[in-house]
């Protein structure tokens, strides 16, 4: 699995917000893109997902395992996403949130996979709980698991550790990276915090609309 960006960029009413750049992310690799807020990091992830909203416009090609995503509907791109907020659906239970993105199939099998995932997250028995009764760290873990159960071919991480307190943060950060690397999922992480960079990982920077190696 690999994620390749070819001359991708974002324009705002004709002006370049992010100048075209290219990037190749290998299976299991987590590339970090750093930049101040307002630099277009989150918009870049929305563009990769095919959901850039006007007046922003997208340019360039995105290849996932060699397939050009340009003509693929957002829901069929299989790009997992994690946000600053966990965005667990408040009207669905924890278990239903996990089932939401899981591929169709036998009900018993899907339920078993959901429970297994909860146990793996240290949240066994939480399936019927409403999301708002979980702590911030628990919710972010459920959000990660929900994303992974949809079997994404690549992950886009939008400062997902930002709202966690310091102790929890490093713990969830390392468990997230471990899971992604173990599954060989190519991932792009955007952040403004150096501490979020995985050990030995490649780091890019956005400066004045240009993406460069840090």
């Amino acid at each position: 699995m690999s994620l390749v960006l070819e001359q991708v960029g974002i324009t705002l009413e004709g002006d370049a917000l992010i100048a075209p750049f290219s990037l190749s992310i290998a299976p299991g690799e987590i590339v970090t893109l750093m930049g101040p807020s307002g630099s277009g990091k989150s918009s870049l992830l929305s563009g990769l997902a095919g959901l850039l909203a006007p007046p922003l416009a997208w340019q360039g090609r995105v290849l996932l395992n060699g397939e050009d995503l340009g003509l693929v509907a957002p829901a069929r791109r299989r790009l997992g996403r994690l946000f600053q907020d966990d965005l667990l659906f408040p009207h669905l239970s924890v278990g239903e949130n996990l089932l939401f993105g899981m591929a169709r199939g036998g009900r018993a099998l899907r339920l078993a996979r959901m429970r297994e995932a909860l146990a793996e997250t240290g949240l066994a028995g939480f399936e019927n709980r409403p999301p708002h009764t979980l702590s911030g760290g628990q919710r972010q873990r459920v959000a990660l698991m929900r994303s992974l159960l949809a079997q994404p071919l690549a992950m886009l991480l939008d400062e997902p550790f930002n709202k966690l307190d310091a102790a929890l943060r490093s713990q969830i950060r390392s468990s997230t990276f471990d899971l992604l690397q173990a599954r060989g999922t190519p991932s792009l992480l955007v952040t403004h915090d150096l501490a979020d960079v995985p050990p030995g990982g490649r780091v890019l920077k956005i400066e004045n609309g240009k993406v460069k190696d840090a």
């Binding site: 069929r76 299989r78 946000f83 886009l156």
Partner: peptide, 13 residues
């Protein structure tokens, strides 16, 4: 709008 983005990332049309 992130509800839409997160749903799409989970494969929901």
């Amino acid at each position: 709008p992130r509800w839409h983005e997160v749903s799409a990332s989970l494969g929901a049309g």
